[in-house]
Simulated scan of single mutants.
Amino acid sequence: MSHDDLLGALDGTNPPVPPAPAPGGRPSSGSGARSSTAADQQVCSRKGCGHPAAWRLEWNNPRIHTPERRKTWLACEDHRDWLADYLQSRGLLKDVLPLDPTGTDTREKDS
C-alpha cells in the first residue's frame, strides 16, 4: 500500500479494499465471513465436502500431543471410512463415534 493509499484509507477518500477470499472459495479462518448457518451446522471435514457430519473421528499425534489429548474430525456417511483410513494408516486414529447433534459426549460413562 502506498503512502497516499494509506492516508486516503484513513480519511475515508480511499476506502480499504476487503481481503480476497481464500483459495477454493472458502473464507480464511478468522475472517468472520462464515454465515451463521454454516457456523451452526457441523459439516464433514473432508476437503470440498459440505455435507452434514454424522460421525466424530477422534485422533492424536503422539509425536506432538499428550496421550490423553484428542483432536476431532467430523465425517459424513460418505467420507467416514476414507477419513478413518487416512488417520489409521498414519497411526493417529483413536476412536470413531456417532456425532450426537446436541453436542454431548456419546461415549459410555463408567458408573
Rank of each mutant, 00 (worst) to 15 (best):
G103H: 03
D100C: 02
T66C: 06
C44Q: 06
T106Q: 12
R56L: 14
C44M: 02
P67Y: 02
S45P: 00
Q41P: 01
V43Q: 10
A9N: 11
S35L: 07
D110T: 10
P23A: 11
E108S: 13
N60M: 06
S45T: 04
V17E: 15
R69Q: 13
P27R: 01
S45F: 07
G30K: 00
N60D: 03
R63V: 09
A9L: 08
T13Q: 09
Q42D: 09
W55T: 01
R107W: 03
T37R: 15
E77D: 15
D81M: 05
E108R: 14
Y86G: 06
L99S: 09
T37V: 13
P52M: 09
A75K: 01
E77Y: 02
P15T: 03
D11T: 11
L74P: 00
Q42P: 05
A84T: 03
D105P: 12
D100A: 07
D100G: 01
D110Q: 14
D5V: 08
S89P: 03
S45K: 04
C44N: 07
Q42V: 12
P16M: 05
W55N: 00
G25K: 00
C76T: 08
G103D: 11
G103Y: 06
R34S: 13
V17I: 09
E77H: 07
A75G: 04
T72M: 07
S2V: 04
P16N: 03
P67S: 05
R80W: 00
